[in-house]
Design a protein around this nucleic acid. Sequence first.
DNA 1: ACCTGAACACCGTTCAAGT
DNA 2: ACCTGAACACCGTTCAAGT
Lengths: 183, 183
Amino acid sequence: MAKNNRDIDLDVKKEELEKTAERLFVTYGYDATSMSRLAKELGVAPNTLYWYYASKDELLVGVLNRRLGESIKQLPSLMGTPLKSQMNWALQEFEQSSALVNTVHAKLDQSPVIRQWHDQFHRFIEAAVIHTLKAEGASDKRASMLATVGTFLVEGLLSHPHSSKQQEDILEWFSINALGDLG
Amino acid sequence: MAKNNRDIDLDVKKEELEKTAERLFVTYGYDATSMSRLAKELGVAPNTLYWYYASKDELLVGVLNRRLGESIKQLPSLMGTPLKSQMNWALQEFEQSSALVNTVHAKLDQSPVIRQWHDQFHRFIEAAVIHTLKAEGASDKRASMLATVGTFLVEGLLSHPHSSKQQEDILEWFSINALGDLG
DNA sequence: ACCTGAACACCGTTCAAGT
DNA sequence: ACCTGAACACCGTTCAAGT
């Protein structure tokens, strides 16, 4: 952590913090990365981190939001592309963070702040997929169900890596059957 | 923990231990249940647990195997029933342990013993589903892919509870499209 | 506003010792 | 074979104090 002492603005500081945290989280895992370890990496006392975040979980939320923000930038260029390529994009985009996906799910019942982030994230993703499906002619109810299914498939593939052929087959099967009939 | 001092046999002892552990894990979560808390519940010193299990993770594996063993007993009467009712059965069977499903996934990269259990569990489940699908006329490759998809859907529904109507719609859609054509 | 040293209550686990 | 008291290295977090 480059010296701050108020000559560096808060957002820049948080960015450095969250990027370092993300690196350690994805490399060693969230639980295996202690606040002390992160602080040492930043050249700072462990309790300093608590000036920036109320808890380790809130730091995780900061990391997740930053990660999500970067991905969202690419969304416009993705709209209008086929469902399958959207799912492939999501898989590639979150591949490195797949361990964090599992961490989030495991902490759902213990951490309100993570639960809140998770639910909002799901609403966001499903809204995007529903939009795509409706553009392809699906009814409201059907689009909503298929968005849930698509999300489950992406999460499943992130948690349980398969060969690219298997992955391809699954996405192909899904997109064919999702758009197969009217709805 | 009723007095043991070698007048109670090891399996009985482990059963009591694992049933208590399961209750606490399911109620408060794995991470939130300390070995001390479990020991207190059993009326025993915390380190006593390490005579029975090499680590907390191995205790979790013990709990999972016991849970799985109980469910497997019901398998014979399930074979031959439609795919959808098999999936409904799995959902109902693991509903209470859904938090543990997430715990297992989160620990995959950190704990070899849990990774091992998880992989074996998946192989077992997929083999069962593949058997069912092939009996319905699916090809090897198609049955294998659909088993993966089915597993992802069950895991997704366990992690993200939906209304029974939504759940029903998803399973209905899946079983129709899984068996829709030849394969 | 930003950072620290010291402490707190806890964690999983080990070890030497008891029966 | 089974169990314990005491300790170890660590954890996330708090607090009072410094600049």
